[in-house]
Design a protein around this nucleic acid. Structure first.
Lengths: 214, 214
DNA sequence: CGATTTTTGTACCATCTCGCAAATTAATCC
DNA sequence: GGATTAATTTGCGAGATGGTACAAAAATCG
């Protein structure tokens, strides 16, 4: 039940009034995210979350709201992290192939991470569970899917403008294929398909996409 | 709690001894499958299953074992049905494009079916939940993924032999791309992406695959 | 008919689940 | 130091959950 004994000392620390928090919200949210990603919403109990975060239930509730809200906040956090790594890759100028390689490598690293084994993509996990029954969560998932599509589309559009792809190439179609490859490795990673095999799939897909004649 | 009042009269009915069953195991398993597909393992309670199947809990237990066994049997049933529709499509001779169209159309029909909304692919749903923690279930999922890969690979191999694809086309790579497209529409369907959009994705993917130069 | 066999229905148990209320602790403000 | 503020700890309660024991019911067999 102890996360860290020292005070957070985050930023300027504007001298908060009452008893200081025994946890760092960011760290706790990260732990919750880990759990939700591996086990899913329904299979994760508040006790699990309490143990993982080092916060007991009332604190958890006070900081993040009920289980569903915590799940949503975890998902938003996941998306922020994913987005950050994407922005990174899109900042520099580089050949399409290289950019694609870096995007897929980043995705693989995220999907294969985890102490107890690969955990895949949280968007996919959520789509496969809560998204059917919860409109709000479904909307977030849909947004996540769209964001990936758009990122890939912009990648292919830039490549086309630079003449790296033939005029006949359709960025939107290629983007959906790239997204599909991401979804596929996300799923396969949870079935413990080896990194080597996943990388082979990625390579095959990239070869096909950058040689696209359609 | 009533499923059917008449006796099953299945096959020859070898004069069973005790009290006759009030349910048809096949029908009940189908109902259980429906529930598990939409809600997942953890979010589906025995009460839900009991209500849906029309069997009370002890009968459910007697017929299928505990919840996990029922889930496994449901998944096997799902795979049998999916396999049957595939065999159907592979029996006749036809152009690659047409065969691909039929495979994807079949998948879409399965994924978009459901009274309360689309339910996607049970293999994907299972991969995204139970597969991480349960080795037996994970093995079944892996088998399901492989089966789809192999089916597509054989499809492309046949096409290549018939000269429908260039010599440079790699059936294994194309197959994994086709599988990826299936995984992608399975996920998107659960986020309520419209059939029209899903069909557009499928069309784009097919165009690219049958024109493959890689 | 009575014995046997198999399934059903009722009821229950031990455990877990989520959420919250009340009391406690630790800091700042005056 | 006392008041105030905010977080922690304890513990509870209503309900759900997975699983099972046991008796009643409905069929066949002899």
């Amino acid at each position: 039940m102890v996360q860290k004994s020292k005070p957070p000392a985050a930023a300027v620390e504007p001298k908060r009034r009452g008893r200081p928090r025994a946890y760092e919200p960011d760290v706790a949210l990260g732990k919750a995210l880990d759990l939700f990603r591996t086990q899913g919403f329904a299979a994760t109990s508040l006790d699990d979350l309490s143990e993982a975060t080092g916060m007991n239930r009332p604190s958890l509730y006070g900081a993040f709201g009920d289980k569903r809200e915590l799940y949503i906040k975890s998902y938003q956090r996941y998306r922020e992290e994913a987005r950050a790594s994407m922005v990174e890759i899109f900042r520099e100028e580089m050949p399409v192939r290289q950019r694609l390689e870096r995007i897929f490598a980043s995705a693989l690293n995220i999907y294969l991470s985890g102490e107890t084994g690969p955990r895949g993509c949280f968007t996919v996990v959520t789509a496969a569970s809560e998204a059917v029954g919860d409109p709000d969560i479904r909307a977030m998932v849909l947004d996540g899917l769209n964001e990936l599509d758009k990122a890939f589309a912009s990648c292919f559009r830039r490549a086309k403008e630079k003449g790296e792809l033939p005029e006949s190439a359709d960025p939107a179609v290629l983007a959906q294929l790239a997204s599909a490859t991401v979804h596929s490795i996300a799923i396969r990673s949870r079935a413990r398909v080896s990194r080597r095999e996943l990388e082979a799939i990625v390579k095959g897909a990239i070869d096909l996409m950058v040689a696209a004649k359609s």
